[in-house]
C-alpha cells in the first residue's frame, strides 16, 4: 500500500519517538558508567574508566555475577530436561488431562512474579521445611524457565510431525533409539533457542529471587538494588546495569537468529 508523504512523516516520527523512549535511558546508563561524577549529574562533567575498573575489582560484584550465572545455568538445565519431556508427552501422546497439563505448564510465565515469589517462599519455609538458599532460587526460576523451552520444543515437534519417528520405528528402532537418533537432532536448535531464552529470563529476574533467596545469596539484580541508593555507588550500578543488558540481550539475539536460520533452512 502506498502512503502519502505526510502520513509517512508522521509514522516515522511516532516510531522514532517510541524507540527513543525505550532506548535513550539505556544509552544514558551506558554513558553514565563512564561519567566522572559520582552523583551521575547530567551532562557528565567528564569521562573516566574508573568505575569499570572498580567494578571489576569489586568482590561483591564478581560474586554476584558468579551467583547469577550459576543460578541461570542450573535452572536452564532443569528447564531443558523437564520442558523437553513434557513437550514430547503433550505433543506425541494422547492421555487424560492432556490439555489441563498443557495449561498448567504454560501458566507460570503469566503469573505475577510477586505471587510466585510469595507462594514459593511460603511453601519452602513453612510446608516443605526447606531453608532458603541458592537452590530454592534455582527451583523458583526453573518454574518459569520451563515455559520457554517447552514452547520452542512444542512448536518444533508440531512442525516436524510424526513422519520421521514413524520411519524410524518402521526401520526397527525402539522408542529410546528413535529419540536419540531422530527426535533429539530435530529438536536440537529449538532447545538451544529455548535454553538461551530461559538463561536470559533467569539472569535478570529479581522479584521471585527476592522472595526465594537465602541470606547471603546475591544475584546481580539484587546487588544492583542493594547498591542503588548507597552514596557514591551510582556509577558502579550503571556499570553493572550495562553488563546485565549485554548478558541478557546476547542470548536473545542468538536465539532469534537460530530460529530464523532454521526457518530459512526448511
Amino acid at each position: 500500500m502506498h502512503l502519502g508523504r505526510p502520513t509517512r512523516g508522521l509514522l516515522a516520527a511516532i516510531t522514532g519517538l517510541t524507540l527513543a523512549v525505550i532506548y535513550l535511558p539505556l544509552v544514558v546508563v551506558l554513558i553514565n558508567s563512564f561519567s566522572s561524577s559520582t552523583s551521575l549529574s547530567w551532562p557528565p562533567p567528564g569521562f573516566t574508566l574508573e568505575w569499570w575498573v572498580r567494578t571489576a575489582n569489586s568482590a561483591g560484584a564478581r560474586d554476584a555475577v558468579v551467583t547469577s550465572v550459576g543460578v541461570a545455568l542450573a535452572s536452564t538445565v532443569i528447564a531443558l530436561v523437564l520442558g523437553t519431556l513434557v513437550a514430547i508427552a503433550l505433543q506425541r501422546y494422547d492421555f487424560f488431562g492432556r490439555s489441563t497439563v498443557n495449561l498448567l505448564v504454560i501458566l507460570p510465565i503469566a503469573l505475577p512474579g510477586i505471587v510466585t515469589g510469595i507462594a514459593l517462599n511460603n511453601f519452602f519455609r513453612t510446608i516443605a521445611g526447606v531453608p532458603l538458599s541458592i537452590w530454592t532460587v534455582v527451583v523458583a526460576h526453573a518454574t518459569f524457565c520451563i515455559v520457554t523451552v517447552f514452547n520452542n520444543a512444542v512448536a518444533r515437534l508440531r512442525r516436524t510431525g510424526t513422519r520421521l519417528e514413524e520411519a524410524s520405528a518402521d526401520l526397527g528402532a525402539g522408542g529410546w533409539t528413535t529419540f536419540r537418533l531422530v527426535t533429539f537432532p530435530q529438536l536440537r536448535s529449538a532447545l538451544l533457542a529455548g535454553g538461551l531464552l530461559a538463561f536470559a529470563l533467569s539472569f535478570d529476574e529479581i522479584i521471585v529471587t527476592t522472595f526465594t533467596a537465602g541470606s547471603g545469596v546475591t544475584t546481580l539484580p539484587i546487588f544492583i538494588l542493594n547498591n542503588m541508593f548507597r552514596p557514591n555507588q551510582a556509577p558502579v550500578v550503571a556499570v553493572i546495569a550495562v553488563v546485565l543488558v549485554v548478558v541478557s540481550v546476547v542470548p536473545i539475539y542468538l536465539a532469534q537468529r537460530l530460529s530464523a536460520a532454521d526457518v530459512d533452512r526448511r
Binding site: 514413524e166 520411519a167 524410524s168 526401520l171
Partner: peptide, 29 residues
Amino acid sequence: AAFERDVSTVFQDYALFPHMTVLDNVAYG
C-alpha cells in the same frame, strides 16, 4: 509395535532424516 513388525514402508513424502547424509539414511535400519 511398528518396530517389531517385519515390514518396511516407503512414505508418500519419503520421510528421509534431514539431519543425516543419504548414506546414513540408508544405513539407518
